[in-house]
Design a protein around this nucleic acid. Sequence first.
DNA 1: ATAACAATAAGACAATGAGACAATTACACA
DNA 2: TGTGTAATTGTCTCATTGTCTTATTGTTAT
Lengths: 142, 142
Amino acid sequence: MGAKEIQIKLDFRSGLPIYVQIMDQIRQMVGSGELEQGDQLPTVRQLATDLRINWNTVARAYKLLDEAGLISTQQGRGTYIWESPPEAATLILRHEALEGLTRRYLAEVIRLGCSPEEVTVALEQQLDLWKAGDPPDETDQN
Amino acid sequence: MGAKEIQIKLDFRSGLPIYVQIMDQIRQMVGSGELEQGDQLPTVRQLATDLRINWNTVARAYKLLDEAGLISTQQGRGTYIWESPPEAATLILRHEALEGLTRRYLAEVIRLGCSPEEVTVALEQQLDLWKAGDPPDETDQN
DNA sequence: ATAACAATAAGACAATGAGACAATTACACA
DNA sequence: TGTGTAATTGTCTCATTGTCTTATTGTTAT
């Protein structure tokens, strides 16, 4: 019914487990406000067919997020974003989302064959631009 | 399931390592069009019993072909012929790709509302893991 | 001989898939 | 209003599949 349509992108070659990729991206959506408390997530079967994976893999991601307190999975009812206790929890959540993004970024970069030093240089370059007040390009070139 | 039945002939007296023979013949099948992108290869255990060898030897061949970009091995899912972008991957300079990934990473991070300092910390944390030899994997879901 | 190295094997392990199952909801019908 | 049946949804258990670490075997250089 009112399940929010969310967009999750999987990278089967990143080396990151699928369920971790799902967890990371849901955390990110909550952290950025794209998902709010009370929003219903797609059912495990729906999201699974969308992503062409087994729904048990989605179920695992949901279950772990549930145990982490981010969402509420209810057998027979569905899965919902859990009410977010203010401040402290959102800080933690944002931090987790940042970790997830970083993890994915590094996985992609490693696959590219870059060295840690190259990554450090590339990032500091653009970080400097950012600090100087020039926000990075927002265009998603996937 | 839909694993393509492929025919591989081993010559145990040729002096060529088994895993090299497997790699060569799969490469050849892809080159001749006998195997196309998306085709599922037999599992390491299936092909191994067919050839009467240890499945770790097949796994080795698959892993090397994966790193070479020819196939995609996915734990728990199987092994598939990977789309080979003959030009895209090689023409794009790694440096440009790195910059693009970094730009996208920072854009998403900004959407989360993180500060440059947070990003630096998060990245260096996982970079240290990387340098220490650990692949950037996650075991923190408590 | 023996040390060093590559190829292969063995086994534990993690990620994913498949199917039966239980809780909840929706709805027809009395 | 109540009830029974089917559909929906998450849970549980186990098999499948690739990964990793370590041991064994065979070859080669010293």
